[in-house]
Computed example of a mutant assay.
Amino acid sequence: MKPDQLEHLLLENMGTALLLLDKKQRLQYLNPAAEMLLEKSARRVQGRRIDLVCPKQPDMLSFLQSAKKRQQPLIKHKIPLTLPSGHNFTATFSSTPVEINNSASLLIEITRVDSELNPEHDQKHRQQYSATRALIRGLAHEIKNPLGGLRGAAQLLESELNNPEQKEYTSIIMAEADRLHALIDRMLRPSQSPQKQAINIHEIIEHVRKLIQAEAGQGISVCRDYDPSIPNLRLDRGQIVQVLLNIMGNAVEALAGAGEIILRTRVLRQHIINGERYPLSACLEIIDSGPGIPENLQPQVFFPMISGKANGTGLGLSIAQSLISQHDGVINLHSRPGETRFEILFPITQTP
């Protein structure tokens, strides 16, 4: 391999975001990690001034102006960034003056400071997982008996119906009762691993979307923005259906009959999940335009028995986080008035 090919290969596969700015602060290069971090396509922004590409990043632009004036290595921690998708995070910026083709340039390195890298964050997720598992096992016994009665009633009702369209509803009730019964059985078994198989995540999302569509009503629009490049993922279908039902159901309740839900999927490169960096990850976002979750509740929403709703049990999100943890994934929450976004992250691994 030639030296220039090796350099290109290293830059393209680095987990750190790299930008190259010329003396007029025009973008000359972004590596793929920078494209993912800033949600910008290198082809679209190459040659444009950084202040036009990222106009709403005053702290970042202030740092770049300082770096340009000093023309010496500079580093600054905890620079806040807000991306077009609404993601908020902090990053460490470092600049190094370089000369390329006899022209002064700046090499900018951006390192995202993920909450997942915080040991306290990891400890919180472990506490959430342990507390939820203990509670689930206690409640599962109480759920199985009425669930069997529900299925039996639906089966009797179906035998009395002659209309095929009406029978379709009873079939859904029985199928969902069977799915929940199987899910509870797996939860009650000690150290039972998820029954993973290669599954198209969009097929699961569409299945749940159809289930909640009737509950949502005509006043709630559901917009889909899927990334078709996501490969099949090794998932337990029943568990992921339950996760999505819990989160989408909360979104419908939050909107109270009017608003928008966005279902978005993306592939992420070199992303960190639970303290481990993965070359490729799948990100599923469920976004609603509701009033948001109170700020004082946000750090606790994944703990059992914590709910911001008067009639809430505080179990849905804790169960969802527990199930996703069994897939080596994590659920993150970002909420403000007018937008609540649940971000579900899965590592993308080789499927057999």
Rank of each mutant, 00 (worst) to 15 (best):
I50M: 06
P279N: 00
L255K: 00
S130R: 08
K196W: 04
R126Q: 13
D288H: 02
F303M: 12
Q326W: 00
L245F: 00
L30V: 06
L64H: 02
C54V: 12
E7C: 13
A34G: 05
L106R: 03
R209I: 10
G138L: 13
K124S: 11
Q197K: 15
R186C: 05
S322M: 15
Q326C: 08
P304E: 12
T340R: 03
I344N: 01
R209Q: 15
I204V: 15
E142I: 05
K40R: 15
V252Q: 01
S318T: 11
R234Q: 15
I108M: 08
A214P: 06
N101H: 09
Q218H: 11
L37R: 02
S130K: 05
L107M: 13
G338W: 03
K69Y: 13
Q155I: 05
L64S: 00
I287F: 03
F93K: 02
A131E: 10
Q242P: 06
L19A: 05
V222N: 02
L74N: 11
S41G: 03
Y226Q: 10
E203K: 14
N311S: 09
S62A: 14
Q72G: 09
S193I: 07
S85G: 07
L235T: 08
F346A: 01
G290W: 04
L188R: 11
D22K: 05
H8S: 15
I100P: 00
K167V: 08
D4E: 14
M248F: 10
E295Q: 14
E160W: 10
R341T: 13
N246R: 06
Q242D: 07
Q123M: 08
A154S: 14
N246L: 06
I247S: 01
A175P: 04
Q242E: 12
D227V: 12
E39C: 12
N162Y: 15
R189T: 10
I331A: 03
P291N: 11
P84N: 03
T351L: 14
N31F: 03
